[in-house]
């Protein structure tokens, strides 16, 4: 009995300590990322919050910029534009924020979270993604509404779905999708796997798919152009670093990276 209670005590202590250590380890690594600027190497940490669709281009720009400025440590945080706004409003530390549309950026400026006026730096338009063999012979937006065509769209609740609805209206079409996906990458996946005959995605998604899907452009896409905006966060921990990154994005080198990925001019 006595031995058992000692064992139980040890086990309980172990569980409590273990849990506490596991939790503190999590939070320590989380803080480490943000507190990098205080490290003895005196590296300057620039924190960039960017829309998920900018992942490939911004990662490349950050790598290029770090080569020119070895003292810079650029932390990139990618999420949906809505989530980024929520995070910044909740006080997450950020120097620069880039959103995939102007409406989301407007929420931040209205809130007083942006220093100055955000700059428009890129645009993205919808295109029809089809499997490389284009089994359903899709040539226009109207083909997506043909009976028997398995089309997937984003749900209207998410930004790519709202844009899809706009082009449908512009073309006076009613597309009956076999699935309304939660994100544009889900649409891309369903087309790339061949489960769907076609889907509406962004030009940059087709460019980034490395041949897994083919793009079919259509004229009505001009009715739903997404403009990307970038701004300096008010009270940025490293405003100078933030400005440097921002001017890189809007400058020649950044614009070249964006154009290569399929982004249009703002």
């Amino acid at each position: 009995m006595r031995r058992e209670s000692v064992w139980v005590k040890t086990a309980v202590t172990g569980v409590v300590l273990g849990t506490a250590m596991a939790l503190s380890a999590c939070s320590a690594s989380g803080q480490g990322a943000a507190a990098g600027s205080a490290s003895p190497v005196a590296k300057k940490t620039v924190i960039v919050f960017a829309a998920a669709s900018l992942k490939a281009t911004f990662t490349q720009m950050a790598d290029d910029l770090k080569k020119q400025h070895p003292e810079l440590d650029i932390k990139l945080n990618f999420a949906g534009s809505q989530d980024l706004v929520a995070q910044i409003k909740a006080g997450a530390p950020a120097d620069v924020v880039a959103t995939a549309d102007l409406a989301t950026m407007d929420k931040l400026t209205a809130n007083g979270s942006v220093d100055g006026t955000p700059q428009h730096f890129a645009s993205n338009t919808l295109t029809i993604a089809v499997p490389p063999s284009n089994p359903a012979n899709i040539g226009s937006l109207a083909d997506l509404a043909k009976p028997g065509t398995r089309t997937v769209l984003c749900a209207v609740q998410v930004p790519c779905g709202a844009a899809s609805q706009k082009v449908e209206k512009a073309a006076s079409l009613t597309i009956k999708p076999v699935s309304e996906e939660l994100s544009v990458s889900d649409v891309l996946g369903k087309v790339a796997s061949g489960e769907a005959d076609a889907g509406l995605v962004y030009k940059t998604d087709v460019q980034g798919s490395k041949g897994k899907v083919k793009g079919v452009d259509f004229p009505q896409s001009s009715s739903a152009v997404n403009t990307y905006a970038i701004g300096l966060v008010k009270g940025a921990p490293d405003a100078d670093g933030g400005r440097l990154f921002l001017s890189d994005v809007t400058g020649d080198s950044g614009q070249a990276v964006l154009a290569a990925a399929g982004f249009g001019k703002p």
């Binding site: 997937v152 749900a155 609740q157 076999v178 699935s179 309304e180 939660l182 889900d186 369903k190």
Partner: peptide
Amino acid sequence: GNLEGVTRTLPLDIYLV
């Protein structure tokens, strides 16, 4: 997939709304 009345179950609907 995710389509109302066909494949959109309650957890998928929660995630969407």
